[in-house]
């Protein structure tokens, strides 16, 4: 019974990881790919680790530490990628409705 629950949790996690991968293919520009690719994967990874913790209760402490490190390092890398992209003027998709950062860095008339 425990094995079934653990496996289902891992399966749920892999569905989110699949969504993250599909997002990388479908999204129109780098920023949106970062959104789906690196971050829709957080819940996926956490669920997979949780599933492993259910299957192997002795590992729970170490797995919790892994979750903790993912929660702290994942946003830093996403942020660094996005900031570097914007600094290098990687274009935003046509669907973009507003870019306040560009407006702040280049006030009107100074395009």
């Amino acid at each position: 019974m425990i094995e079934v629950i653990g496996s289902l949790v891992i399966l749920a996690g892999s569905v989110f990881l699949f969504a993250a991968g599909l997002g990388v293919l479908r999204m129109p520009d780098s920023y949106n790919r970062i959104q789906t690719g690196t971050k829709a994967s957080t819940l996926g990874t956490i669920l997979v680790l949780l599933g492993i913790a259910i299957l192997h209760p002795a590992w729970t402490g170490k797995l919790l530490l892994l979750v903790f490190f993912i929660l702290f390092t994942n946003p830093v890398s996403s942020h660094a990628l996005a900031r570097a992209s914007h600094t290098r003027h990687v274009p935003l998709s046509d669907k973009t409705v507003v870019d306040r950062l560009d407006e702040a860095e280049h006030p009107a008339g100074d395009a």
Partner: peptide
């Protein structure tokens, strides 16, 4: 986000807000 990714029409309105 998963719903956005799986929706047939990519119905997103991205932008950078402050």
């Amino acid at each position: 986000v998963a719903r956005l990714v799986f929706s047939p029409r990519l119905d997103i309105h991205p932008g950078i807000v402050e």
